[in-house]
Design a protein around this nucleic acid. Structure first.
Length: 116
DNA sequence: AGCTTGACTTTGA
DNA sequence: GTCAAAGCCAAGC
């Protein structure tokens, strides 16, 4: 069995996946949503991240949009905090965009599918 | 109760 | 390739 039933909070599932993202890798909201079985709920993932501030360890800086753009950088402690965190993990960021995003992309559906 | 907004994605032009 | 519009679900007003 993958995750719990959908009766559990969608946010918890999102957080769980985000925490599993390897250091130096990134993913998109859509991939997480799809991994949870609701690809249309990509926006909900964003909401989850918005609420992730009340959580201790949520590497939200590893979660970007489909274009690899740091869309939520303005919601961090500082607008530049997200980029700094990514660069500190070895991820190069150019103009609020992750360099070689496609290469650093961490497919949740695949990784979790073959890992679990 | 309803309407608007939002850290998104996909499809159509 | 880009730009505009629709769809989606949850939280906030």
């Amino acid at each position: 069995m993958k995750y719990s039933e959908q009766t559990q909070d969608f946010f918890e599932q999102v957080y769980q996946v985000v925490r599993l993202i390897p250091k130096g890798r990134v993913t998109s909201y859509g991939s997480i949503a799809k991994a949870l079985g609701t690809p249309k709920s990509s926006r909900i993932v964003g909401w989850a991240m918005n609420a992730s501030h009340k959580h201790p360890d949520i590497p939200a800086h590893r979660v970007l949009n489909r274009n690899g753009l740091l869309t939520g950088k303005m919601h961090f402690e500082s607008p530049t905090r997200m980029q700094e965190l990514l660069e500190k993990e070895g991820v190069k960021v150019e103009k609020d965009k992750v360099v070689d995003f496609q290469r650093l992309f961490w497919d949740v559906q695949e990784e979790l599918g073959k890992g679990m």
